[in-house]
Design a protein around this nucleic acid. Structure first.
Lengths: 145, 145
DNA sequence: GTTAGCATTGAGACTAACTATCAGTAGAAC
DNA sequence: GTTCTACTGATAGTTAGTCTCAATGCTAAC
């Protein structure tokens, strides 16, 4: 509830109008499970136009209120995010996503900048693996099968 | 020439047939500039079906003879690659891409594995910045403008 | 060299994920 | 309230890729 209010305030701060449709999209996004597609949101907001849902999610992306997740099969999903710079650890079996903010890419980036004479602006890191539960399940399967 | 021969051999090794269309796609891919889209290849191979170009590039991806590059605008490009695990440093102004193999994400990944109990399988890192030339050009513009 | 089997092909329909257009609507500032 | 203009929904278009299927053509066996 107050989360929505916070988002609304940030939208207003940027000069965006708070419309009925936008509110409905915000609510739907908040009610999604961990990560979702734009299509999921479209289905949760009957009556709101496709384009409006895409537009609203793009605004949320611009405001860093939502982030993209690249799944290992190449699919792009979305996820609420109140934090700033962070990365994702994606389970390739169950699709669970964990954020991690401890991003020690900095030394690498600095070294890279020196070696290449690039002025480095940003980086994007996704890590793929198998979560504890899926790891245990797999071990069991191997033992049984 | 010999590059093509090498690729052909790797395809044969995997049991893929060497057809006229595949040869044409291979040639076209080799003649592309640093990075390209599938559409670029389609235009360079008139007469070869769209699906065939996509299929052939997918095979090259599977064999790690081609890799994907995620540009900073979200577009996905492709690039010849004979090396194994590597990452990209992309210039956000001119689009130039440099590979780097020195990937010190390992310590981070190990720590992450310990903290989250994930069994980590892979990671994907793209770094964005401004190359030496574009940096100089920009500085000049600022000075003049 | 011929044949047979099956991988591959090209055309085209289909899908997913978005963007563009545009006339109509409705926030919000006054 | 009025007015201005951002926003909306419908819909068409685009991009990037997959699926289907009958026809073709590698390749290996004879």
């Amino acid at each position: 509830m107050s989360d929505i209010q916070l988002i609304v305030e940030r939208l207003e701060m940027r000069g965006h109008r708070i419309t009925r449709s936008r509110r409905r999209v915000l609510n739907a996004v908040q009610e999604q499970p961990a990560h979702f597609t734009v299509d999921d949101v479209i289905h949760s907001t009957p009556g709101v136009g496709r384009a409006t849902v895409f537009r609203t999610i793009r605004i949320l992306l611009d405001l860093n209120l939502v982030c993209r997740i690249l799944l290992d099969d190449g699919a792009l999903h979305y996820r609420m995010s109140t934090r700033g710079h962070h990365h994702h650890l994606v389970c390739v079996d169950c699709g669970q996503v964990e954020d991690f903010t401890k991003c020690d890419v900095e030394p690498l980036v600095r070294e890279l900048a020196k070696a290449t004479e690039y002025e480095i602006e940003a980086h994007w890191l996704e890590v793929y693996g198998r979560c504890r539960v899926c790891r245990l399940l797999k071990k069991e399967q191997v033992a049984v099968g």
